[in-house]
Amino acid sequence: MAEELKQLADQFLQLQQRCWELALSPASLPDDAPENGSTRSSNEYQPNEISRTLFDAHARLLQTLSNSDKTLSPETLADHFQNITSPALSRLLLEQWQLPASLATAITKEQPGSENPSQDKAPPDPLATLIRGTASFAPACNRFNQALARYLTHLEAINQHTLHNLEQALKESGQPGSGLELESLWTDCYEEAYRQQVFKPAYQKDYAELCNSCTEMKESFNSQLETSLSGLGMVSSATFRQNLIRQQQQKKAMRRMQQKIRTLQEQLDTMSRSHQHQLAEFDSERSILRNELKALRELVLDRGTK
């Protein structure tokens, strides 16, 4: 059974990997030529490892169960979910918020619930050690860890609530016909529990704090990096952005001027048309007057002759 599960897990991950490669490969859009800068390089994409982590953890549990006579208690399941959710969440956050690898190592060493055995065997990262020791970075790191700990309590509540929902559902509908049906039922129960939790103001506050602390860490890291780079006489990204803003403001000013020119041109055209109309009327009147004058002269001449 353990061997079969391992084979299944391998195949599953192989399928996932291939799907990722295909889905994230350079675009096969007919008109998006790279020279126009509209296609992204596949190097920008990194496969989301979250499902791999979760699947690995579930496979490990199933393997353990298949090798023994153990049965699952709700407590064991709750612990299991919490144990795999915590590191998976950490990995997801670090990947999603694009925190540099050294920074990520620095954080994961201190994270609550971080239980990746392979990390402990890895050689120490000198930059990560340096970052941990940097006083200016420490507050951001601490806030992140505190926010993560608070957020994990919500996940714990969701996992507990999911199991409660699952127990109720199983009591009502009986044993599911297959493992896939059980998984579908678990998904329904999880989403229900999750929805109830995320609409709570406390969850929203802690979620925002977690996101803001990730941003703060990134900002703190950038700030140190920029200081070092500017020390070497290089342009900082802040200066670069300020220049972009100035350039954009100039473009806007030019656009407004072009708009004004267009409006003035339209007014000029209107006036010109109106002026031409007046000239035409004047010409017409002048020609009438000329004709009348000519007629009068002829009349005077005619009377003089008589």
């Binding site: 599953f12 399928l15 996932q16 499902s51 579908s184 998904t187 989403e191 999750y194």
Partner: peptide, 14 residues
């Protein structure tokens, strides 16, 4: 929808 769009989708994919 983390479970539905995450592990559930992956399991249903084959």
């Amino acid at each position: 929808m983390p479970a539905r769009l995450g592990i559930h989708k992956a399991i249903q994919a084959p």
